[in-house]
Simulated scan of single mutants.
Amino acid sequence: MKITLDLSKLVEDGKLTAEEAERLKALASQETGSLGVNILIGFGVISIAAGAVALLPSAATVIAVGILLFMLGLAVVLNKVTQWAVFGQICLVTGALMFAGGVIGEMEGSVASMLIVTAALAAASLAARSSLLAALAVIALSATLGARTGYSHAMYSLAIFEPTLTIVLFAALALLAYWGSLRLKADDERLAVIVARTSILLVNFGFWVGSLWGDPLFLLRGFKDHNPAEMMRSIVIPDYVFSSGWALALIGAALWAVTVNRRWLVNIAAAFGAIHFYTQWFERLGATPFSVLLAGVLMLVIAYGLWMFNRRMASA
């Protein structure tokens, strides 16, 4: 578990010696450097895999090359060839991503293909100890419910077609992953935490979309006997249910996170709390100068209340 400490303050208060603080700083700098390298490797690997998928002549070729790269990387990792460790990790991740892209292309993005990709990425993340692959496995699972993103000129889009199922499924996965993280060794704990965090993001996206449009329950009602356009006019779960539930979930998550010192969850609850507030505020009042001014004032009042709460918790 990672925590945040103010070393200068702890030294000033006499709770930590200067030598201990310097030792912790040295350890932190190593972790920060490792994080920077991993981020660069992650972006590079995704670019390589995407380019290779586009350039190779067929999906079957992409799958075959992906499997070969993955096996090469796995051999390096299993044999613990230290001088080639980074190369092995790159081969593992690139191979897994190429295999996933090939399967999706070969099966034309079907639900079955996304389930295969989810299982493959999950297994690869364990073999490679890769947080990137663990997160992508969760995202691939969300695609089985129709979740997707898009981009056109100067505009990004997010689609969640099954808000209710997304919330239920990924809330359960987040709880299961968190429970597992408390019982696993450090490397496996890190992967479980990534799965839990990615699932929490998807839960919030489900609430966000549901709070705007409600949920016609496409999957449960079936597409074959219904016209999607007509189904959107007969919402089963109204938007106010998601709005209320999201607010309660965010408050509950924030309070729990404070008590167990889960800083990431506190920040996420605060971020999505602000998104929820502004979304509902401007949906109801519109973006007028007065509504913008009043929204800013209310947000500062809430921030002040949270600051006072944190001070009381720190002095308790």
Score class of each variant (00 low, 15 high):
residue 2 K to L: 09
residue 10 L to H: 13
residue 12 E to C: 07
residue 12 E to N: 07
residue 13 D to G: 05
residue 13 D to C: 05
residue 15 K to H: 15
residue 17 T to Q: 07
residue 18 A to W: 13
residue 18 A to K: 08
residue 21 A to E: 10
residue 23 R to S: 15
residue 25 K to P: 04
residue 26 A to F: 14
residue 28 A to L: 07
residue 32 T to G: 07
residue 32 T to Y: 15
residue 36 G to E: 11
residue 37 V to T: 05
residue 37 V to C: 06
residue 40 L to C: 08
residue 40 L to G: 14
residue 45 V to N: 03
residue 48 I to S: 10
residue 49 A to E: 09
residue 49 A to V: 13
residue 54 A to Q: 07
residue 55 L to H: 11
residue 58 S to N: 09
residue 58 S to Q: 11
residue 60 A to E: 15
residue 60 A to H: 12
residue 60 A to N: 10
residue 61 T to M: 08
residue 61 T to K: 03
residue 72 L to E: 03
residue 75 A to F: 04
residue 83 Q to A: 06
residue 84 W to K: 02
residue 86 V to Q: 06
residue 86 V to D: 08
residue 87 F to A: 06
residue 88 G to L: 00
residue 90 I to Q: 05
residue 91 C to G: 01
residue 91 C to D: 01
residue 101 G to S: 08
residue 106 E to A: 12
residue 109 G to W: 11
residue 112 A to N: 08
residue 113 S to D: 10
residue 113 S to N: 12
residue 114 M to W: 15
residue 116 I to A: 10
residue 122 A to Q: 06
residue 127 A to W: 06
residue 129 R to S: 14
residue 129 R to V: 14
residue 131 S to E: 15
residue 133 L to N: 00
residue 133 L to W: 00
residue 134 A to R: 03
residue 134 A to W: 02
residue 136 L to T: 04
residue 137 A to K: 01
residue 139 I to R: 03
residue 149 T to L: 04
residue 151 Y to R: 02
residue 153 H to Q: 11
residue 158 L to G: 02
residue 158 L to W: 08
residue 165 L to W: 11
residue 165 L to F: 14
residue 169 L to K: 06
residue 170 F to S: 00
residue 170 F to R: 00
residue 170 F to Y: 04
residue 172 A to W: 00
residue 173 L to D: 01
residue 173 L to M: 02
residue 175 L to E: 01
residue 176 L to I: 03
residue 176 L to N: 00
residue 177 A to H: 01
residue 183 R to D: 04
residue 187 D to I: 08
residue 188 D to R: 06
residue 193 V to W: 10
residue 193 V to K: 06
residue 194 I to T: 14
residue 196 A to D: 00
residue 198 T to V: 06
residue 204 N to M: 12
residue 205 F to N: 07
residue 206 G to K: 02
residue 209 V to Y: 03
residue 209 V to M: 07
residue 214 G to H: 03
residue 215 D to G: 00
residue 216 P to Q: 00
residue 217 L to N: 01
residue 219 L to F: 15
residue 220 L to D: 08
residue 221 R to V: 13
residue 221 R to F: 15
residue 222 G to N: 08
residue 223 F to I: 04
residue 223 F to L: 09
residue 224 K to C: 07
residue 224 K to L: 14
residue 225 D to S: 07
residue 228 P to R: 02
residue 228 P to H: 09
residue 230 E to N: 05
residue 231 M to F: 11
residue 231 M to W: 08
residue 233 R to Q: 13
residue 233 R to L: 13
residue 238 P to F: 00
residue 239 D to R: 08
residue 239 D to G: 02
residue 242 F to T: 08
residue 243 S to L: 06
residue 243 S to C: 03
residue 245 G to I: 04
residue 245 G to F: 11
residue 247 A to M: 07
residue 249 A to V: 12
residue 251 I to N: 04
residue 251 I to M: 05
residue 252 G to N: 09
residue 252 G to A: 10
residue 257 A to I: 08
residue 258 V to C: 07
residue 258 V to L: 11
residue 265 L to M: 09
residue 266 V to R: 05
residue 267 N to E: 10
residue 269 A to R: 02
residue 272 F to E: 04
residue 272 F to V: 02
residue 273 G to Y: 02
residue 274 A to I: 09
residue 279 T to D: 14
residue 280 Q to E: 15
residue 281 W to P: 05
residue 281 W to R: 03
residue 283 E to S: 12
residue 284 R to L: 15
residue 289 P to I: 09
residue 294 L to C: 02
residue 295 A to N: 05
residue 298 L to H: 01
residue 298 L to A: 10
residue 301 V to M: 11
residue 302 I to W: 14
residue 302 I to Y: 15
residue 302 I to S: 10
residue 307 W to P: 05
residue 311 R to H: 14
